[in-house]
Design a protein around this nucleic acid. Structure first.
Length: 217
DNA sequence: AGCCAGGGTCTAA
DNA sequence: TTAGACCATGGC
């Protein structure tokens, strides 16, 4: 079995330097909500919808209904509008200044995010990593699929999170890049052609193939 | 046509 | 505490 660091090195060797979500923390916060259970292409439409206006003050000036209509193409618009509103109010407690937020401890920051409507573990970790450079490994559907294909068995997301955090340097940049590489890999190969010969993990998928034939997956 | 997409909340047992 | 219904829209 490969260690988390070895897996990362393979991904990095194969895909090259990963992208970063965005350097605009508030944009990441909003997009992290919009992308919930939705395709990225729907979220991208919002970049033209909002243009360069996506700032806390602009969102605060919109009514809930107005915001709902703007984000409708992303689905679950009522819940997401409420969530974006809550997130914006929270961020403005720190004057919309990510430098102020960085003074809060990781544990407390994560709790504050989780207390907001519509912010669960994954979205909280995305915000921690990409907005505030805090090392909290992101576990999403791709991460679960990816590990399963490699033959790792975990009971729940907490175990997966521990698996990565205990096998890597405590480094938010690393976590963010890792998450992005898994995403890139799953979109390119992991879901469609897990056993294709170019896949850097092809030989580790043989076990999974057996399970598939046995109807376990 | 019908299924799925990078989740989260609420409720019932 | 956990499983399952529910939330909404777009793309294939």
């Amino acid at each position: 079995m490969l260690t988390p660091q070895e897996i990362f090195d393979e991904l990095l060797r194969y895909y090259g330097k990963p992208q970063w979500w965005s350097d605009n923390p508030y944009q990441v916060m909003v997009e992290a909500v919009l992308v919930q259970r939705t395709t990225w292409s729907n979220v991208e439409k919002m970049r033209t919808t909002f243009g360069g206006k996506l700032r806390p003050a602009y969102i605060q000036a919109l009514s809930q209904k107005q915001l709902e209509e703007l984000i409708r193409p992303c689905g679950f618009h009522r819940a997401k509008a409420r969530s974006i509103k809550a997130l914006t109010e929270w961020f403005m407690q720190y004057r919309g200044d990510s430098n102020q937020v960085r003074h809060i401890s990781l544990e407390r920051l994560r709790c504050e995010l989780l207390s907001l409507y519509g912010i669960g573990a994954e979205t909280a970790d995305v915000i921690l990593v990409y907005c505030f450079l805090r090392p909290s490994f992101i576990v999403d559907a791709y991460t679960r699929t990816f590990l399963m294909r490699l033959g790792y068995l975990h009971e729940n997301d907490r175990e997966i999170k521990n698996f990565f955090e205990q096998g890597l340097d405590i480094d938010a940049k690393l976590y963010g890049h890792y998450h992005w590489l898994i995403l890139e890999h799953c979109i390119a190969l992991c879901r469609k052609k897990p056993l294709c010969k170019e896949c850097p993990f092809a030989r580790y998928c043989e076990t999974v193939n057996t399970w598939k034939n046995d109807g376990i997956l």
